[in-house]
């Protein structure tokens, strides 16, 4: 047994730890970040939040305005996710390595998906605001494009994972591409597709709030207005409603997922 082996390993782990601390210290010093001061400030921050960020009784008078906005945002997310899912699925079927048309398609589709996926939704919103101004459509488009990129990638992986064998079998029977899609690829991948789409709806409700602040529409815009006019009680109520909506959505999609397996 080589005792130095264990010694070396301990030294290596210790060295990495020291290095991490050093990097942290240098970067914190550079931006003037003082961890101790932050720790000391936390209790005060919490107290302030508890005092101001509390939905008051008066705030509930505005609940109908809030719920209407929230409803719009939720529906926008659902619509953008579902339409993006349709386009993403078409692209994924064509571009799938195992099942698709082959040739240059896998590379092209992957490239397109990658571009849309790697531009953050917020960046899309900024870009699109120049062309489409502040409107709900801008928000819809931003969510659509981000979701399209992400779902295309997910669907590609799902199809390649589940459909390869059955596609090969149907190809061997002499079936053409279109029947293979409807008879094998769709049935084999439909659960994954529904599952991913539900996940994107959840994510998009969260993102839509942020996008709404930028595009001046939906629940995000409402929050922005209340927040900037120092109506923290209303802003808090908005956040509470969003949290409830997101949790409800997650519960529903979990239920649906369990049912379709």
């Amino acid at each position: 047994m080589d005792k130095r082996f264990f010694l070396k390993r301990s030294l290596a782990i210790g060295g990495v730890f020291v290095l991490l601390v050093a990097v942290n210290a240098v970067s914190a010093g550079f931006v003037g970040f003082n961890p101790l001061k932050v720790l000391a400030d936390i209790p005060g921050g919490i107290v302030w939040m508890a005092q101001n960020f509390m939905p008051s009784v008066a705030a509930f008078e505005k609940i109908d305005t809030i719920l209407i906005s929230l409803g719009k945002t939720v529906l926008l997310s659902v619509a953008s996710s579902c339409i993006a899912a349709v386009f993403a699925y078409l692209c994924a079927v064509i571009g799938s390595r195992e099942a698709g048309l082959g040739g240059p398609f896998p590379l092209i589709i992957r490239g397109i998906a990658s571009v849309f996926r790697n531009i953050p939704v917020v960046a899309w919103a900024f870009i699109l605001m120049f062309s489409f101004k502040q409107s709900e459509f801008t928000g819809f488009l931003a969510l659509f494009l981000g979701t399209f990129g992400y779902l295309t990638r997910c669907f590609l992986e799902s199809i390649d994972e589940v459909a390869g064998g059955s596609v090969e079998a149907l190809r061997a029977t002499g079936a053409g591409f279109a029947p293979i899609v409807t008879q094998a690829i769709i049935p084999m991948s439909i659960t994954a597709v529904v599952s991913w789409t539900l996940y994107m709806i959840e994510t998009n409700i969260r993102d839509a709030t942020l996008i709404g602040i930028l595009t001046g529409a939906g629940i995000g815009a409402l929050f922005d207005v209340y927040y900037k006019s120092f109506r923290y009680d209303l802003a808090a109520l908005v956040i509470l409603c969003i949290v409830v909506a997101v949790i409800a959505c997650e519960a529903i999609s979990n239920y649906v997922r369990r049912q379709i397996i």
Partner: peptide, 28 residues
């Protein structure tokens, strides 16, 4: 290499897909 989300009889019938028109094949 079956379509595992379909029933046995559906899988067996898929052996006929090569003989079908595209429309009949697509709609099963």
């Amino acid at each position: 290499n079956l379509v595992y989300r379909s029933t046995s009889i559906e899988n067996v019938l898929q052996g006929r897909l090569g003989y079908k028109s595209t429309i009949a094949g697509v709609l099963g």
